[in-house]
Amino acid sequence: MEQAGTALAGRIAERRAGVGDPRALVGEMRRSVLLVPLADGGLWSARSGGVRWVCAFTDEAALARFALLHAPGGRPVEYAELLGARIVDEVVPSLGEPAGLAVDIATEDGSMFFPPVVGIVPDGAAVDAGEGVRA
């Protein structure tokens, strides 16, 4: 049986290669259990381009690559296991600012960003909700 994180990593690789269905990628992200590092009493995130990105990883190897870059002194990184749907449906809207999900950011040529747009996050948290665009 294929693990959800592995399936998501495969869908990400397809999209980065210019193939695969974007809706299938979003669906796989929603079904996947992701590893989200904890920092300062919350989920680790970064701001870029006017968006707050909740950072998550498809497996422990991807999280370990991140930890090598961001954990002071090589300390272990504590993390939460969250369903992708919970991140984009509950966590992102609770942040009160444009926010999305960044997956596997420390993986060379393997990262994928799920921006705060209709079809990925709830309409109330989507930056394009007033434009009538559907993903």
Rank of each mutant, 00 (worst) to 15 (best):
A102T: 08
S48C: 06
G27N: 04
R52H: 08
L35K: 10
S45G: 14
V117N: 01
E131F: 10
R23Y: 10
P98L: 03
A56F: 03
G20C: 12
L63H: 13
V77S: 10
V26T: 03
V118I: 04
G50T: 04
P22I: 00
V121R: 10
L83Q: 14
D21S: 12
V77F: 02
G20D: 11
D89F: 11
W53V: 07
A64E: 15
G18T: 08
I12V: 00
A106C: 13
A17Y: 02
V51L: 00
M29S: 08
G41Y: 14
A17S: 10
V88T: 10
A125I: 00
P93W: 05
E2K: 09
V19E: 13
G5S: 13
D40F: 11
V133S: 06
G100K: 06
L82I: 11
F66W: 11
V92R: 04
A62P: 01
R11L: 11
A24F: 08
V121F: 12
R31F: 06
G27V: 01
M1T: 05
F66D: 09
V117M: 04
L69D: 12
R30M: 01
L63V: 06
A64C: 10
V133E: 13
S32A: 15
A125E: 01
V92M: 03
E97H: 05
L63S: 14
